[in-house]
Design a binder for these strands. Structure first.
Lengths: 205, 205
DNA sequence: CGACAGATGTCGCTTAGTCAACAGAAAAGG
DNA sequence: CCTTTTCTGTTGACTAAGCGACATCTGTCG
């Protein structure tokens, strides 16, 4: 239920009843707001209903539980950040670095906006972030000629998790370097992996 | 239709369907937002519908026209300002001045948040503001012994319009004094009128 | 002048959200 | 331990909002 509902939420983002868009938006905001006050496991469905001013039954008509809500919230906010920065892999050079930078910024901001400070992210949340990264990487590769040595899915999955892993340990490092510097580092580490998937003629920054 | 619907909106503010509250809130915000971009007469119902992300039919189920919406918006925002400042005529001393100050601040802020800058207020809008003033003055007098020389309604109406008149010309004065000073002035001008309605023993600041 | 694009109210049908009530699963606590 | 309370999912009846369509009523242009 988790990933499917998240994807459904994202893909049909346009032609979607304004009411459900609003309700989900309100549930997202309620969750974000509550996370500033208490830890995730202390948040009840009732809390979410009250904070969002929506009825409890309405919550259940959108999400089966609070984990799924959190996952969808993270995914959609991460995606919004990407959209705001207009991060697109179409424009080769520096795209990978931009992706890494966005991930670093997002994780840092998320951990700051959370009650526990740097509370370890839920497993499902990690998956949500990686899902966005994978989708973007896949889209980036879609327009390129591939050499069939490895499946594109494997490559993008590898790179996506690698970005997440790097960024995640980075935010949890007490004395960390700048996000800018970190993303530069990630770019250098991973660009070769990405190149290994595309045909020699094609070029990916 | 105008005043009645406004009052209905205010009085039943608590036990009111959340959906209705939300929709009206969104319509208010849409109107306020549009007023920053264009003048009132250039705003169409469709504009309001689009800006609020509500359906055009939904607008008509709340307000008969944009004039009524504007009026309700002004009234409710003015009332909110009062509530925020906890202006209450129960606490005698300085209450009238606080009322005047709130009115000055509100009119100034409203004219600033309007496209035309200092565009003359609609007649219905003036009535909305005065209605709030009158209601507060009436409530303030309700707990006091009155000498029957003049009806309380006449007094509060007089004072309310006087406050509005003073504040309104004040905001339209290019080189005006501070709102603080102006409200002090209004207080001195009008407090005697208010006193004329209450019994000698009672005291109203 | 008519043609035409756009705004206005209004209507019927569909769907989302509200609300009260329910039974069952945890916690709390004496 | 058993009671009491709180949270949880779920249901069904009711109401608000969405949507498309329609007949107007503008204003504008050739």
């Amino acid at each position: 239920m988790a990933i499917e509902s998240f994807n459904a939420e994202q893909h049909a983002r346009e032609n979607l009843d304004p009411r459900v868009r609003r309700s989900r938006q309100m549930l997202h905001e309620a969750m974000a707001s509550l996370l500033r006050k208490k830890s995730f496991e202390d948040i009840s469905i009732q809390d979410i209903a009250e904070e969002s001013t929506l009825n409890r039954a309405t919550f259940y008509s959108h999400y089966p539980d609070k984990h799924t809500l959190l996952q969808c919230m993270i995914g959609s906010r991460f995606q919004e950040l990407m959209a705001r920065r207009e991060v697109k892999l179409g424009s080769c050079e520096g795209a990978l670095k931009a992706l890494a930078l966005a991930t670093c910024d997002f994780l840092l901001e998320t951990s700051r906006a959370t009650c526990g400070g740097k509370a370890q992210l839920e497993g499902s949340v990690q998956a949500a972030i990686v899902a966005v990264l994978r989708a973007m990487l896949n889209e980036g590769l879609a327009y390129r000629a591939l050499n069939g040595t490895v499946s594109a899915e494997v490559v993008t999955s590898t790179v996506a998790w690698a970005i997440f892993g790097a960024a995640n340990t980075w935010v949890q490092t007490p004395e960390r370097c700048s996000a800018e510097h970190m993303s530069e580092l990630i770019d250098r580490l991973l660009s070769s992996i990405l190149h290994s998937a595309v045909a020699p003629a094609s070029n990916l920054g």
